[in-house]
Simulated assay, not measured.
Amino acid sequence: MDTKKVFVHAKWEVKEGKSETVIQLMREAAEKSSQEEGNLFYKVHQSQTDRNTLILYEGYANEAAVELHRNSDHFKEIVLEQVVPLLESREVILMNQLF
């Protein structure tokens, strides 16, 4: 079994006037995601200079935990179905810690 931790860095550009809606939706998504087996943390940040830029930083015990997250009902229903349509762009980077 792969035990290498996986970290996710996501940069979202929210459509003008939609940031408060996205933040409210992400409160629920973060709460549910933090309770998943294998989740180490789930943090949502907002840029100090551009309120429409959100950065998500997530940690997972391994690849299986990332897949569990991506296949969860709350990820599909909240993030994919409700949040993604409110974004101008979405960049997601999966990372492994080097040191």
Results as ranks from 00 to 15, higher is better:
residue 83 V to P: 00
residue 62 N to A: 14
residue 92 V to M: 13
residue 98 L to K: 06
residue 57 Y to A: 12
residue 90 R to S: 07
residue 76 K to Q: 15
residue 63 E to G: 01
residue 57 Y to W: 15
residue 4 K to S: 11
residue 93 I to Y: 05
residue 55 I to F: 01
residue 2 D to T: 15
residue 83 V to I: 13
residue 52 N to L: 15
residue 67 E to M: 13
residue 45 H to G: 05
residue 90 R to F: 03
residue 97 Q to C: 09
residue 22 V to G: 07
residue 64 A to D: 12
residue 6 V to K: 06
residue 34 S to L: 13
residue 61 A to K: 15
residue 10 A to Q: 13
residue 33 S to C: 04
residue 37 E to G: 11
residue 29 A to P: 03
residue 86 L to W: 05
residue 47 S to Y: 00
residue 50 D to G: 11
residue 29 A to W: 01
residue 16 E to M: 14
residue 11 K to Y: 00
residue 17 G to E: 04
residue 79 V to L: 09
residue 46 Q to S: 09
residue 36 E to Y: 02
residue 91 E to W: 01
residue 67 E to D: 14
residue 12 W to Y: 09
residue 51 R to P: 07
residue 53 T to W: 02
residue 1 M to C: 06
residue 84 V to S: 08
residue 45 H to A: 08
residue 97 Q to K: 07
residue 2 D to N: 15
residue 10 A to L: 04
residue 74 H to Q: 05
residue 31 E to G: 10
residue 67 E to G: 10
residue 61 A to W: 00
residue 43 K to A: 11
residue 89 S to M: 03
residue 39 N to S: 08
residue 71 N to L: 13
residue 2 D to H: 11
residue 80 L to A: 08
residue 38 G to D: 04
residue 6 V to S: 03
residue 11 K to G: 00
residue 92 V to Y: 03
residue 21 T to L: 05
residue 98 L to A: 04
residue 4 K to Y: 00
residue 23 I to A: 07
residue 45 H to E: 08
residue 77 E to S: 12
residue 7 F to H: 08
residue 40 L to S: 15
residue 71 N to K: 14
residue 19 S to Y: 03
residue 81 E to Y: 03
residue 22 V to Q: 02
residue 50 D to V: 12
residue 27 R to L: 04
residue 59 G to D: 03
residue 17 G to T: 05
residue 30 A to W: 07
residue 10 A to V: 10
residue 63 E to M: 10
residue 13 E to V: 11
residue 13 E to K: 12
residue 20 E to A: 14
residue 77 E to F: 01
residue 23 I to F: 09
residue 78 I to Y: 00
residue 52 N to M: 10
residue 99 F to R: 07
residue 86 L to I: 07
residue 80 L to K: 10
residue 91 E to N: 09
residue 21 T to A: 10
residue 65 A to C: 05
residue 69 H to N: 04
residue 64 A to S: 14
residue 68 L to M: 07
residue 63 E to C: 01
residue 15 K to N: 06
residue 57 Y to V: 02
residue 94 L to P: 03
residue 92 V to H: 06
residue 3 T to N: 07
residue 3 T to W: 02
residue 98 L to F: 06
residue 92 V to K: 14
residue 81 E to R: 09
residue 47 S to Q: 05
residue 54 L to N: 04
residue 20 E to L: 10
residue 71 N to R: 12
residue 31 E to Q: 15
residue 40 L to W: 02
residue 48 Q to C: 14
residue 32 K to P: 02
residue 35 Q to D: 12
residue 92 V to Q: 05
residue 65 A to D: 00
residue 80 L to H: 05
residue 42 Y to G: 02
residue 8 V to L: 13
residue 69 H to A: 08
residue 50 D to L: 09
residue 49 T to D: 13
residue 79 V to Q: 00
residue 2 D to P: 06
residue 78 I to A: 05
residue 24 Q to K: 08
residue 82 Q to M: 05
residue 89 S to P: 02
residue 27 R to T: 05
residue 14 V to I: 15
residue 85 P to T: 04
residue 43 K to H: 15
residue 83 V to K: 00
residue 1 M to L: 11
residue 35 Q to S: 13
residue 56 L to F: 06
residue 20 E to G: 08
residue 56 L to K: 00
residue 16 E to K: 13
residue 57 Y to D: 02
residue 82 Q to H: 04
residue 30 A to V: 07
residue 90 R to Y: 01
residue 77 E to N: 13
residue 12 W to S: 08
residue 77 E to P: 00
residue 42 Y to H: 15
residue 71 N to Q: 15
residue 77 E to V: 07
